[in-house]
Design a protein around this nucleic acid. Sequence first.
DNA 1: CTGAAAGCGCTTACAG
DNA 2: CTGAAAGCGCTTACAG
Lengths: 354, 354
Amino acid sequence: VRRPTLEAVAARAGVSRATASRVVNGFTGVRPGVRDAVRRAVEELGYVPNPAARSLVTRRTGSVALVVAEPPSRVFSDDPFFSVVVRAVSQELEAADRQVVLMLASSPAGNARVERYVAGGHVDGVILVSTHGAGTADGAVPLTTALARTRVPVVSHGRPAAAGLAAIPYGDCDNHVGARAAVRHLLERGRRRIATISGPLDMTAAQDRLFGYREAMSGSDRRSIVAIGDFTRESGATAMRRLLTDDPHLDAVFAASDLMAIGALRTLREAGRRVPDDVALVGFDDIEAARYTDPPLTTIRQPVADVAAEVVGLLLTRLPTAAEPPTEPQAGRTAERLSERLVLPTRLVVRAST
Amino acid sequence: VRRPTLEAVAARAGVSRATASRVVNGFTGVRPGVRDAVRRAVEELGYVPNPAARSLVTRRTGSVALVVAEPPSRVFSDDPFFSVVVRAVSQELEAADRQVVLMLASSPAGNARVERYVAGGHVDGVILVSTHGAGTADGAVPLTTALARTRVPVVSHGRPAAAGLAAIPYGDCDNHVGARAAVRHLLERGRRRIATISGPLDMTAAQDRLFGYREAMSGSDRRSIVAIGDFTRESGATAMRRLLTDDPHLDAVFAASDLMAIGALRTLREAGRRVPDDVALVGFDDIEAARYTDPPLTTIRQPVADVAAEVVGLLLTRLPTAAEPPTEPQAGRTAERLSERLVLPTRLVVRAST
DNA sequence: CTGAAAGCGCTTACAG
DNA sequence: CTGAAAGCGCTTACAG
């Protein structure tokens, strides 16, 4: 009932375990006749290598953890962000012949589980989708820090907040410049009273976009008008109501996400404001839905999938390959050659809402 | 630079490797003084057991795969189904001290990856969220069948479609009886022309709900009016338009999901039909949003989280525990004692839409 | 090009 | 209650 071992394959093929191993692992330099005999034995026996045994000696697992520091309700929401990240990361990692292990961690207990799993050596590396701020409410060690001390390579999709002692490599889009471009576009359109709906300020993406708004505004004589949302549609609708109360004469809004812009659009319609005639509106992300609103949404396109691909690249650079054994970390030079951060540009996409 | 081994812990505590192992694994019957010495050594060295070595000898991994046979775009959508399943399954499995490995598989290549992973012995068991039909378009082996031949215990959340040779244990809610109750409720309200918006017919949940509708209708002299959706909001709106064209005089609709009911509600409003005055509407699921529609939605409550918990129980029964070594499968008796299917009841929740 | 042998880091009968 | 020893299934220098 037990699964066949390499020993059995070798016996059947009439070779040594070493040779069988070479064939199974695709080493060149095995005589074709021998190679075929081994392959036949593998086939006939239905042999599958035991990953525990293999990983015990190679000190590699072939798996990478994709850790999303968000609760399931947010990960599985109508925000396409996570869907895109997971898909892009999986695709790139599969192309590199690595298995993705998706883990959600949104509580101190969850963080501890992830840390134990990683520290245990179940994975060769970690990709953190690190959107949220410094640690958990109860002051537990932030996941970023906890993972950094496991000695397993860690990279982040999105600039990590408060990385603390441990600066980890990351990829991100240029939130700051993107947001600034959005507001400048509104200024160029002759808008005078420009408000913004920000994301939650414990997320670096929200911080950077708010900074971009402020910078563009400070170049003019306009005062900033800010409402805070949480990147969801509903929060956008609510924030828009607050903005209309604060300044009934505003003539433009920059929403830090398309979903919030869509919510704001609904509020504006309910309030009898025409878009863009009375109020111009710019979003951020360029999600699919932005093309189908009425009017279609001017927005800042964010290359989420490209960032994900770059982040995977960042990690793969730091992983020992199957060919070369894990090298001792070399001081100085080598480390510096590995780029620590990759910031991809965004692009203004003008549609009918401005 | 290498991680400390059990050998190092034993040396530091002045005991044998065997004793150190016993302490680390929480075996009773180690003298308290010795126990504490080992624990101290573990602490000081920051020892973490090597899972590969452990699993090589125990033939257990402590991990369970949660395989979702859907593309990312559907898993990460605004349908709360997957969110609830993932959360409930994770919670139950963590309580049983098992790590969840979430895998999406929606292509022949994805299926092959999952099969290889499972066959390789990376996990002790598999929970399949098996919503879709028989295999893939290109006639590849259905995942259900492929997994069943790996000899790893497999259970399914939701009745698997076309399990083929391999009947695997599953948990589900009673879709058939639930749908029938929905339609009977409409009949009792005096409705005469009752249509249904079905889910995609390659999913067993959709099949069973349509069957429930048909059964309730066949008891009356009404003819059935069916439109097919895909469980999404948009498809519900579209299907509703089709139904209104087919029979402008219909006075009730049973939608096989709340999301589709919400889409239908929009169409009805656009068509100037009042709900429930002109058309009564019942959904299925009782998702959060069903309470916030206008009018609030009458629906069939489905205990998704409870089913998930039961399914985990089904799997745990089939897993060797840490205490007892894997027993040889005993013919007959034992197997029959393990319940093969668990069907939980649904409940009609009456709100203002009927 | 191939094989004998060591060793990866654990657990677990088996003695005592 | 504790230890010496075998063994889980692989890979990989090292010889030849």
